[in-house]
Amino acid sequence: MEKAKYREKEALIIAAIPPIVLILGAPFVNRVEPWVLGMPFFFFWHVAWLIIGPLFLTAAYIVRTRGG
């Protein structure tokens, strides 16, 4: 039981990273340069998170269901 709780906490921390970075990161990424993949940086930043966000949650899922 104690161990399961511990893993839940770790999963929570991993899952909380994307919201924290996206919410607090706005002032640092609100820029046109550099262009990446044909997009101004502010656009690339959001597209990139749609792809890497699930990787964080997959990690949290593994930690939560299999321990880690």
């Binding site: 996206l22 597209v47 998170w49």
Partner: peptide, 14 residues
Amino acid sequence: APAYFVTAYSTGFL
């Protein structure tokens, strides 16, 4: 909007 299509799923996952 695309930003909350990332962040909202963290909340959903939890």
